[in-house]
Structure formats: C-alpha cells, structure tokens
Write a protein that binds this DNA or RNA. Structure first.
Lengths: 336, 336
DNA sequence: CTTGGCACTCGGGAACACAGAGTGCCAGAC
DNA sequence: GTCTGGCACTCTGTGTTCCCGAGTGCCAAG
C-alpha cells in the first residue's frame, strides 16, 4: 500500500512540521531530507498520502500537515523512542533522590517532567488500591474522639477524626490497635474490606460498637480516596502555543476525573500509552496528545504519569522522557 | 484637590471600565451614570484626573482607563466591600462543611474561591509554625527503621522514615513515644526545638543515641516545611483575558516562592490586603492584582489565601468573596 | 515510474480610504 | 467662576483592493 519511500516522506513531513510549526511543501522537503528524488515525485507521494488520510493541507496551495492518523503511523512504525542523554539521566536521578516524603516525590516528579519535556506534566498519586497496609494507628484525642491514621507501603498517609459512641479507655484502644495491626499489616488495600468483616466477628462483645464505628470510618477512607489525587505542572508551557484551545485545556487539567481518564485506566499495559488528538476521550482536548506510562515499585503498577502537549509534539523525545521518569520514580518508591 | 464630583467621575470610570473592558468616554459616562452634568464638564474633570495620574488614555482620542493609582484610590476611598448574598454564603458553608481532612479543606477552598470570583485562587496551607503538636507517633517498620508521624492541631500530618543507629526493641520505642508526647503535646511548633533540647538532657543514658537520631529528624521536618505549601486553582479563568502576559502569570503561579510573597508576609494585618498592578513585587505580574486575607482559627493567623486577576477586576465583589471564604475556612479549622 | 514545465489557487501583507468615537479648546450662558 | 454647546482635530479599527509568492495538480516527455 505504502512503499518505503512514501513512509520516508511521511516521516519527513512529521519531523519538519514538528520542528518548524509550518505546513511543509514538496520542494523544501526534497531539499532538506536528501531523498534522492525530485520535488515532483514527492508531490505525487504526498497526493497519495493525503488521499489515504495521513496528511492534509490547511487550504489549497499550502504545504501539508500530518493528520492524527499520520502521527499515529509515525509513532507506531516510523520512529524510535529516543533515550535520554547521560547528563539528563543523572540530573533526574539526583533531583528525585532528594525527596523527603511521598508528597515531595510526586511534586518533584511532576516538575521535573514538565521541565524536561517543556510541556504539561501530569502525575497521579500512587493508588491506594494496589498498595498494602503498613500500619494503622489510633490516637486518642479526647474522651470520645480518636484519630485514625493509615500508613501504606508507598508512604501515603490518610487520617480521619472519629467520634466514638462511648467513652473508651486508652488501653482498650491500644488493644484494638494491636488487633487491627495484627490483622491488617501487609494486607492489600483492596482486600481490607473482607479482612475487616472477618475480624469484626471475632471481637469480644463489649468492643463491638466502638469497633464498628472505627472500622466503618476506615472503610470510608478507602472509598473516598478511590478517586485518586492528580497533580500537574508546567501549564506555562501551553502559553506559547496558540494552536490549542487554551481555556479548554486548562479546564480539563483542573478536572480530576477527566485527567484520570486521560492517563488511561491503570489496567492498561505498563508500557507507554500514546493518545493522539481525537483519539482521546475529552473533546476539549482534540488538538493535544497525551503520552503516559504506568509506574510502580517492582512489577505492580501503582499509578500513572505522563505529559500533555500539542499534537505536533516531538514524540520520540517525549516518550523517552516519560519512560525514563516513570522508571526512576518506581525505583525511588521501591527504595523508601 | 479633587472635589466630590471628580471622585464620582473616577468611580464611574473604574466601574464602567471594569464591566465593559473598553476605554470609557465622556459622553457614554455622562449618560449611564446620571451625574447631572454635561459631557463637556466630564471632559474637564477627566483632564484633571489624567493630569494627576489617576486615569490615562491608551492613545489620543480614545476613552480613559484607570491607572494603578486610580484603582488604588477607588479601593481605598470610593468603594465598599460588597457582602455576599445569602445564597452564596449558604453555598460556601455547605460546600466547605463536607471536607474530610485538611487536604480536602484546602482543595475545596481553593476551588470554591476560584469559582466564586471567576479568577485564579491561591491558598496557602496552614503554617506549621503557629500550630501546635497534637500527637507524635513512632511506628516500627523494621529492626532498625521506624516511621515518625507528627500530627498538628490543624490536622496536618507530616511523616518521615528514620533509620536508626541501633536495633531497638519495641517497648523502648513505646516508652520514647510516651515521653515525647508527654513533653510535646500542645506545644507550639516554633517552641519545639527548645523543648526537645531540654528533653534530650533528661533521657536515660542508653536511649541517647536513638533519641538523638529521631529528634534530629523531627527538627528537620519542621525546618523543611518552613517553605509552606501553596496551591492554586482556576487558571482557566485567565484564558479569557488577553490583557495579561499569560505565560508570565502561569510561571509565577507555579513558583512557590513568588506566590508566597504575593500573598504577603503573614505578619501583615489579618485584614484584606490588596496589591494593584505594579505595586506587587514580581515584575511578570504587573497587569494583575492580588486580593488576599489571612485566615485562622480564633485570632491567630495560620496562613493566607487570596485571588489573582487582571487589574481591571471587580474589587468590591472580589474582596467580599475573599473575606467571606477566609472567615469560613477559619471556622472550619477551628471546629475540627 | 520519474521529471521538468506550466498554469492555477489562495493566503497574507501592504497601501489606502473612511467612518466613528473621543478629545481639547473656546466663546457664551447662568 | 463654573458649566455648556459647538467645532475642528486626531486617532484607531475596519473593510477593500491589489499583488506577491509559495505551493499545488496535471501533463507530456525522458
């Protein structure tokens, strides 16, 4: 269907358009990439590519611009992920290594990614669902009030204030804490509900009402946070580019739910996901592409991160950066 | 210097310009605000106002536009803060009341404020310095590793992993925890260093090395977070307005330090602070104004919040919204 | 299948004119 | 003294026209 040379032409169109941001014509193209053929030949190829929907012209008598379909082919078959330079790798490493806690890791990551790609970076906090309980703490605050603190293996901390139905002495609280930890330590968060149900049956009669209250708050905590937290950085990088509807993009960025879907359901392969223009689910973001990857410690994916930019982005470089950052973050989280 | 009518003219210019975003001329002004004088008179007044630097014309034969100095006078002497409507108040109240933890309070606040004012909202997390210790928790993770969790009265939680120099049994940890809490409970964070120093001297010899490690991490935690966290929302509201350098503003918003200074040093009066255009310290933000207020539980100011928008904003309404939100947040924090 | 030639198209910039809004100033009215 | 109406003047923004140049599509020849 498309011979070798036509693919080369498409590649050249994409590369030139990405770097110049102007429709690329047959003449300039034949010169810059020494294809060994004349502009006329290139024109013919372009006509075919256009017919097939890989490129388009903004108006008669302008150069060609890749379509979403064109970018797709480019990403899938015509380009290779470009690894970062050694200096960049080292910079990432040292920058991330300085993080003191989870919040800090995420903040640094999102900034790093934004700076590296000169685009908008998006990072999802590690999912509660896939992580495990490291510790549950009950802190008495007042006679009938305690604070419930849940610490996960990714360093995430959730806390809630609980109002108790009865006055409870501290040592019973301590006992409950011990029991809870014995049961839940190392438990995957998505297994917590059943574990808790099981536990509840085995408690002594007099502890039941208090335990019920505490456990229900604990379960609530898990549910509440099911809609994961997402942060972004680098919005300033959008300002230079008028090709996208700035307002729509900014709105989407502040809408957690939309962002969530953009990064892709976590079930997707941990490998790089690229959504190009109209491929992505939110109509305000046609005109932008998302490059995302899962990250995690070891082989279980905890969450996703990625960048968002105009469809005419440098995919090989962007993909390289996203992949590298995802790996490093995984390492950092595993190490702490 | 400026008689009553000239002030009225200035007020009218500001109001019209704010609502139309177009330079306002003498004729339209004399009609819309029934000043009881002719356009010619208004023209004379305008000439005086211009000479004094309160208004300016973009070019000969255009209407007048307020200068920063003009807005300043308007805010200080010609306008009154506009209270929110009852419906708005109730909406704020119910919206904020639903928050489950500090993170949630801050997130909701910043969104609320952005939506209410249709501008960019900025909220600083409650300062650690002014809050007090509610609880310190030491959680054993491994033989020589524990997690230190610090909970403040504002609901903020900080945690750090600590690597210990020695193997320590759990009950010694428990003891240390008890001692720590006895000392620090209710202690203001800025008093923690001296309290800790005092405590250290009174510990039994064999606990010293471990305690030293833990306490130094604790102190570090306080220092690290001295640069307070700040979040913003509503960046999309900037998109409609081309009068400001979008890029610069977005960059400033992502620069914690700049934001910090914009909100004003916390020492300022808890009352409303308004920074207009070139009055603010960051040159990229000339063209924007900041309305900020301190908030806190009771009378001690914990942190600040505010909104940022084009100099031509509706100051009375914006100020009303900021003040109201600051108050409600204070209440919420005091209540939890 | 490739190439050079050629006529055609269309966007973008320059030059220009024009209407409309707004000003400054002056002389007369209250 | 202060206000007012009138008048000439000065801009900007918009619409029109025109032209240049880049780029195309097609065709006939290599």
């Amino acid at each position: 269907m498309l011979d070798e040379r036509k693919l080369a032409v498409l590649r050249a169109v994409v590369e030139d358009y990405v770097s110049t941001n102007e429709p690329v014509g047959s003449k300039a193209l034949a010169e810059r990439h020494n294809l060994g053929v004349s502009p006329a030949t290139v024109r013919n190829d372009m006509a075919v590519l256009e017919e097939q929907g890989y490129i388009t012209q903004p108006h008669t008598s302008a150069g060609r611009v890749p379509t979403d379909k064109g970018y797709r082919l480019f990403v899938d078959r015509l380009s290779q992920i470009k690894p970062l330079s050694g200096a960049e790798r080292r910079a990432i490493e040292t920058f991330l290594a300085g993080a003191v806690d989870l919040d800090d890791v995420v903040t640094r990551t999102v900034r790093l990614l934004a700076q590296l790609t000169r685009q908008v970076a998006v990072v999802q906090y590690p999912s509660l669902i896939r992580s495990t309980v490291r510790h549950v703490e009950l802190v008495p605050l007042a006679e009938r009030r305690i604070m419930l603190v849940l610490i996960t293996n990714t360093g995430r901390v959730e806390q809630r204030v609980v109002d108790l139905p009865d006055v409870v002495e501290d040592d019973r609280i301590a006992h409950l804490r011990a029991v809870l930890n014995a049961c839940l330590d190392g438990c995957r968060l998505n297994r917590v509900p059943e574990t808790v149900a099981d536990l509840h049956g085995r408690l002594p009669e007099e502890d039941r009402p208090v335990a019920t209250t505490i456990l229900s708050v604990l379960l609530e905590t898990l549910v509440d946070r099911h809609d994961e937290k997402i942060v972004f950085a680098g919005a300033a990088n959008l300002a230079g580019d008028f090709s996208v509807g700035l307002r729509e993009v900014l709105e989407a960025l502040e809408e957690q739910v939309v962002l969530m879907r953009l990064l892709g359901e976590a079930g997707d392969s941990a490998a790089l996901t690229v959504r190009i223009g109209s491929e992505n689910p939110y109509s305000g973001l046609h005109g932008t592409s998302i490059v995302a990857a899962g990250y995690g410690s070891g082989d279980n994916e905890l969450a996703r991160l990625g960048v968002l930019g105009p469809t005419r982005m440098d995919y090989p470089v962007t993909m390289g950066a996203v992949r590298a950052v995802a790996r490093y973050v995984g390492q950092i989280l595993a190490g702490s």
